[in-house]
Write a protein that binds this DNA or RNA. Structure first.
Lengths: 262, 262
DNA sequence: CGTGTTTTTGAATCATATCAACGCAGGTGG
DNA sequence: CCACCTGCGTTGATATGATTCAAAAACACG
């Protein structure tokens, strides 16, 4: 599967500033409505429910890339809502090697530690520059206390998160490098699509090849080669941090990706 | 690390019927009390709570090995409580390859599908002959409805499960074969120990090498060789399905195992 | 005892890791 | 405006961990 043919897309004379790179997250759907739409998909929300969620916007702040939001073994005193950017949960080994356990993307919410006062078993850190709402514990408890519809939707969202975690485990445990990558890209296509950040099979993929490696349990060098394989086979295009899915069907086939678990 | 020296423990003249093998689970703590003790550790239980849990024993039935309890995409109409034996959650690929996502051991409870009427994203199947309580949906809802202490403990138990899943993901994603195996054995030592099924660093480990392979994301052949390495290094002994941890400290060190997340 | 499952072994091959180095692009400071 | 620095992507060469295939030995079970 791996040959040594030079790749047109990577040719220095061809690649380069084809598109300006962006450090900030792009438009897409208004992020608060991303959260609302997502939760509404899990359980129908009333108007007061929506209003309460809109009120969360008051807590939004910009956060730099590589900022630790909750340290491992720490207890969070707030819930997090991602409005823009990518956030990771990860575990670190003594050797320094990391394993990313999950991504949080715009519209995702994280309340571990805020509800049950348990210390976290992993670290939460931004992968990119982000816009994040830190909702104080009391405000968050009040929100779900007074809005059972929201509470139910959140519970179901957590089930979906768990299903995704299962997918990731199966991905790392029983797929080859290219298959893992394909699966991850399919998932991103689906998740980003559901919040309106995909247009014509194209989306911003701000993750570094090292990030991808730490997600998929591969070395960054191998990730680089896997991506080249996918490009060479005409499945994707990736320049700067802009990803284009050229052949969604084949990509899903390669990954045995089953939509709908999100 | 891998040499071709013959291994004393495996020498046919030495091994053999050193201990009678058992297909049925051993004594240990009375299994209903395993459940109670575990839940009580998460949140203090009242006498009525305990009585209600004891009442679950009425649903216990023996189940054969390799019995599917809940099929993938199926909706369960009951909660499961394991009283004896090992149960697995797993995902299957089209190729037939499987990835085990979690073990349920005596004292563990599984209510997915019973509470929220969602279809399951994986299959639940016995790995050994078991004794399992299938608690009807209504009885289960009544139990947690009338016993908030139990409900709270169950919620916390679910958090611990999640932490274990994170450990597994990190295990598969960033550890070598021997390290993965060491980590899994450390976890089993801890979990089985907490339900009184470990004596003098020894316990019954009814899992097949193929089961272990599907858990750790390795081939069964490689699992066999990894186990030989651990034996050769004096870390464990494994005859029949009896496992002895000879050097717990070194095993934990190899695995970078941190106790206490359970 | 015979039969099916599990463990063990060997040999060949493959996938992925590791190490080392280079180039490009962007940001920074003189 | 240029020189420098840093982060990220890319490449090659090499090492090795892990898989696959095939088969025999050991064992469990009826």
């Amino acid at each position: 599967m791996e040959t040594v043919v030079p790749i047109a897309v990577m040719d220095p004379t061809v690649s380069g500033r084809v598109r300006p790179r962006r450090r900030t997250a792009p438009e897409g759907v208004d992020p608060i409505s991303a959260l609302i739409r997502k939760l509404d998909g899990f359980a129908p929300l009333t108007e007061p429910d929506r209003a309460a969620l809109v009120g969360l916007a008051r807590y939004v702040r910009p956060v730099e890339r590589h900022t630790v939001l909750v340290e491992q073994d720490g207890v969070a005193d707030h819930a997090l809502v991602v409005f823009a950017g990518f956030v990771s949960r990860y575990k670190r080994r003594a050797s320094g090697r990391r394993q990313i356990l999950a991504y949080l993307i715009p519209g995702d919410l994280c309340d571990r530690g805020a509800l049950h006062g348990y210390p976290l078993d992993h670290t939460i850190e931004t992968l990119t520059r982000c816009r994040i709402a830190k909702v104080p514990r009391t405000a968050y408890l009040e929100l779900i206390g007074e809005h059972p519809g929201v509470a139910l939707a959140l519970q179901r969202a957590k089930l979906a998160e768990e299903a995704t975690a299962h997918e990731w485990m199966a991905n790392i445990g029983m797929r080859s490098g290219p298959e893992r990558m394909a699966h991850l890209l399919c998932e991103l296509l689906e998740r980003l699509g559901s919040i309106g950040q995909v247009a014509a099979g194209q989306f911003d993929m701000p993750l570094t090849q090292t990030d991808l490696a730490e997600t998929l349990g591969l070395s960054s060098v191998h990730v680089n080669r896997v991506l080249q394989t996918l490009r060479r086979n005409g499945l994707i295009t990736l320049q700067g941090h802009r990803l284009q899915i050229l052949a969604p069907r084949q990509l899903r086939e390669l990954a045995e990706f089953e939509a709908g678990y999100l």
